[in-house]
Simulated assay, not measured.
Amino acid sequence: MKRLKRVLALTLAAVMLFTLGGCKKKTPEEVLEAATKKMSKVKSADISGNIKMKMSSTSSTSSSLEMNMGLKMKATDMTSEDMKMDMDLTMGIAGQDMVIKAYYADGYYYMNYSGQKQKQKMDFTAMQKQMESSTGQFDMSVDNYKDLKMEKKDDNYIISFKFKEKALNDYINKMMGQMNSTGAAGSSTNYADQVKFDSMSGTMTVNKDSEITAQKINMVVSSKEDTKLKIKMIVDVKYNSIGKDVKVTLPDDLDTYKEAPATTAAPSTTTAQ
């Protein structure tokens, strides 16, 4: 009987050890790192989102300017030079709407802005940077985040976070360079020297397969040169059909686009080049 009790006790202990080990609670760092690895291998993308920005001044001549940018982008073969992409950008600035259509194929970046059709030879690395800027992407290395918190909702993990200072500087240069109507995303202007961060945080949704399905970033910055100027920005992006086949639609008249000088920097999508 004593021997049977010992056997039962050992069996129960082994079962409990296995159960507790199998139910180990994941940390936000572990979930984020797994998602980063998984997303880095994704070869196709179907992304939709919206970027809202409001610039306001509390000076004696108080004024404000709002800009909304909606985007839809599909891309295939994202990890190789065979990548193809089609993207629609709808921009609203000061009551005026603009529609920009952009494409990438065979080493060329194409843009149709108000009927002005131009193409520019662009290498694969530069095009990847252009896509990151246009969709508000952020370097997802775990080292760039702080104050990570996580909750489970249905089968998803919702991670809230803040960015470290260096990551903030990199991000503001990317986003402000993209949204500045007179500058290119590859501009040498250091926008981080011109602004200070009042707040910057975000949330990320990761599904059970370690795929990021949504990301939202809230940012408030003030001008260092004019302390009464403030910029509020919200970047809200969704990742659709992750890991599934994506169809990129290219127009039939790409050969009619006028060629502009080649560059290794990503051109601005806010103005025709």
Rank of each mutant, 00 (worst) to 15 (best):
residue 270 T to M: 15
residue 106 D to N: 10
residue 167 A to F: 11
residue 185 A to V: 12
residue 254 L to W: 02
residue 248 V to E: 11
residue 204 M to L: 01
residue 125 T to D: 14
residue 213 T to H: 02
residue 77 D to K: 03
residue 164 K to H: 04
residue 123 D to F: 05
residue 106 D to S: 05
residue 218 N to W: 01
residue 201 S to P: 05
residue 250 L to C: 04
residue 95 G to M: 06
residue 179 M to F: 12
residue 122 M to R: 07
residue 74 K to N: 15
residue 103 Y to E: 01
residue 79 T to Q: 15
residue 6 R to M: 14
residue 128 Q to H: 10
residue 205 T to V: 13
residue 147 D to H: 12
residue 161 F to W: 04
residue 94 A to S: 13
residue 142 V to F: 04
residue 180 N to M: 10
residue 222 S to P: 05
residue 161 F to G: 00
residue 235 V to C: 09
residue 94 A to P: 07
residue 226 D to T: 14
residue 98 M to C: 08
residue 266 A to L: 04
residue 100 I to Y: 06
residue 53 M to C: 00
residue 212 I to C: 04
residue 241 S to K: 13
residue 65 L to M: 15
residue 43 K to H: 11
residue 251 P to M: 07
residue 243 G to T: 03
residue 267 P to D: 04
residue 167 A to K: 09
residue 145 Y to F: 12
residue 206 V to I: 03
residue 130 Q to T: 14
residue 37 K to I: 06
residue 133 S to T: 12
residue 231 I to W: 05
residue 148 L to G: 04
residue 12 L to V: 12
residue 238 K to V: 11
residue 144 N to W: 00
residue 124 F to H: 12
residue 14 A to R: 03
residue 129 K to R: 10
residue 272 A to M: 15
residue 201 S to Q: 10
residue 126 A to D: 00
residue 247 K to G: 03
residue 197 F to Y: 08
residue 39 M to P: 03
residue 5 K to W: 15
residue 39 M to C: 11
residue 114 S to H: 04
